[in-house]
């Protein structure tokens, strides 16, 4: 046995040991995360089958999967997921465009920003779900209303965040542009906008989540399709399997959006070498 300890290979260096430990740590975390999910599902399934919880109200993983399989077979689920994804992405893109343009205008005109400030603050703190019934009356039920609902939740906060990001730019850097003979336009394009990119990206990450919230609120009230509609419908006819399936699908969608934005962020940061 003693012979085994004689190492024919070179001793691992300190760096190699560190790398190994780092890798091991991350594997452990990933494994434990997965284990937690599996454990949760097992406990849920077992308690439903043994009657600890009432599977009529709390459903069970197997029932949810069975429902998903059925909805995949008749393709109905794809239409619902697709419309919710579409509405969320359109809301998100419009929020981004509208807040970028508005915040830019506010930056250009001190007067305009002072005039609009209280309105923005009020609109931002207003619970946007209160507006949804109005949108239905004005725009009817359908995709348009839901996209507007999605926009309304995110847009005011987004404008404020974008504008704040622009304002946080170092005034001396703007002075530098002026000393080089630049205009206010140059100051915006060469300094303010590139310097704000990290803050714009983090606001964007929040916005995609808010757009999803708005779209689901819209679908609760004014839709015949989409995950929000399925959740409301499922609760009204006491099909809790349907409700829980859709909540789980929303979890996956929210995570997908977050990861997507994170990848875009990573790409931009790498390109700008921030």
């Amino acid at each position: 046995m003693e012979n085994l300890k004689v190492n024919t290979h070179a001793e691992p260096t300190k760096q190699e040991l560190f790398m190994r430990q780092h890798l091991r740590h991350h594997r452990q975390i990933a494994l434990l995360r997965l284990l937690l999910l599996v454990l949760f599902l097992i406990v849920w399934e077992v308690s439903a089958r043994t009657g600890v919880i009432d599977s009529f109200f709390f459903s069970s993983p197997c029932k949810v999967m069975l429902l998903l399989w059925e909805m995949c077979k008749d393709y109905s689920i794809f239409g619902h997921v697709g419309i919710t994804l579409f509405e969320t992405l359109v809301s998100f893109l419009l929020v981004f465009l509208v807040s970028l343009v508005t915040a830019t205008l506010l930056w250009y005109s001190q007067k305009l920003s002072e005039i609009l400030e209280p309105y923005l603050v009020v609109l931002n703190s207003l619970p946007k779900s209160a507006l949804a019934p109005l949108f239905i009356v004005w725009l009817g039920t359908g995709t348009k209303t839901i996209i507007v609902a999605g926009i309304s939740v995110a847009v005011f906060g987004s404008i404020i965040s974008f504008y704040t990001a622009f304002r946080q730019c170092d005034p001396e850097k703007i002075t530098l542009i002026y000393t080089l003979g630049g205009s206010r336009r140059d100051a915006f394009h060469k300094v303010v906008l590139p310097a704000s990119v990290p803050l714009l990206l983090s606001t964007t990450k929040v916005n995609i989540g808010l757009a999803l919230v708005g779209v689901i609120i819209g679908e609760f009230l004014a839709a015949r399709r989409g995950l929000g509609y399925l959740i409301i419908y499922g609760s009204q006819v006491f099909q809790l399997n349907l409700v829980i399936l859709n909540v789980l699908l929303l979890c996956i969608i929210a995570m997908g959006f977050y990861k997507g934005i994170q990848m875009i962020e990573h790409h931009i940061r790498k390109k700008m070498q921030l």
Partner: peptide
């Protein structure tokens, strides 16, 4: 004009 800081842009 040379300002107090170099203000080179990191991007």
């Amino acid at each position: 004009y040379m300002l107090q800081h170099d203000h080179l842009f990191e991007w």
